[in-house]
Structure formats: structure tokens, C-alpha cells
Simulated assay, not measured.
Amino acid sequence: MLIRIVRMTFAPERVPEFLQLFEASENQIRSMPGCRFLELWQDADQPHVYCTHSHWDSADALNAYRRSALFGQVWPATKALFAAPPLTFSVTPATPDQQAADSVQ
């Protein structure tokens, strides 16, 4: 499983537009092959900063979504609302078994 976090800073006056865009597309994103989970977080101290938190079967599944027509519509519309560049990263769950295997290599 791949977990994807995207931290986005919006111009405060553009937040309603972003929320409308997210609401209109969230179920379509959740329906993409390989998407297991999607939620939206709002920063507790900076209300114009949001993060998407999503779970994907694999990097290939995430990349297939990133090549989709849906992403081609949603991401440019979202980027137009940014007040700063986004911060994106992918992580995988760390389990004791994985950590032990990694330390041997």
C-alpha cells in the first residue's frame, strides 16, 4: 500500500472554490482503480491550508490516476488556486518486520 499526502496552501479567498472542486470530484477519485481511501484534512492553525490523504494499492495505481482524464481536469483547476507550491510525498506503512528486513540489507 502507498499512502499519498498532498499539502496545499490556498489564497484564503480561494478556499471556497477549492472546497467546491474537492466535493465535486472526491467520489470520482475514490472510484479510481487502486484507490482505497481518500480524505481531506484542514490545518488546525492555518485554515487556508489543506491536505489530501489517500491510500493506493501501489505506486502504479497512483500513477495511473495521475495520467487519467480526471486528474487532468482536477489538478490544473486546483493548482490555479494555490498561494504557494504544494508539498507532496508518498509513504508506506512501517512494520517491525519491514524495519528488521531493511536493517539486514
Rank of each mutant, 00 (worst) to 15 (best):
M1W: 01
I3H: 06
I3D: 08
M8V: 10
T9A: 10
F10T: 07
F10N: 11
R14Y: 04
V15N: 07
E17Y: 10
F18S: 01
L21K: 12
F22V: 04
F22H: 11
F22R: 06
E23Q: 13
E23C: 02
N27A: 12
Q28C: 06
I29T: 06
I29P: 09
P33R: 07
C35H: 07
R36V: 04
R36T: 01
F37W: 08
F37D: 09
L40H: 09
Q42W: 05
D43K: 06
D45Y: 15
Q46D: 12
P47L: 09
H48Q: 03
Y50E: 06
T52C: 06
S54L: 11
W56G: 00
W56A: 01
D57K: 08
D60I: 04
A61Q: 01
L62P: 08
L62N: 07
L62C: 00
A64R: 00
Y65M: 10
Y65E: 06
Y65H: 04
R67E: 08
S68E: 02
A69I: 15
L70N: 08
F71H: 14
G72D: 01
Q73K: 14
Q73Y: 12
V74M: 07
P76E: 13
T78A: 05
K79D: 13
K79L: 13
L81N: 02
V91L: 12
T92F: 12
T92M: 14
P93M: 11
P93W: 02
P93C: 06
P93K: 00
A94K: 10
T95P: 00
P96I: 01
P96K: 08
P96H: 05
Q98C: 01
A101I: 14
A101S: 15
D102M: 14
V104I: 15
Q105K: 14
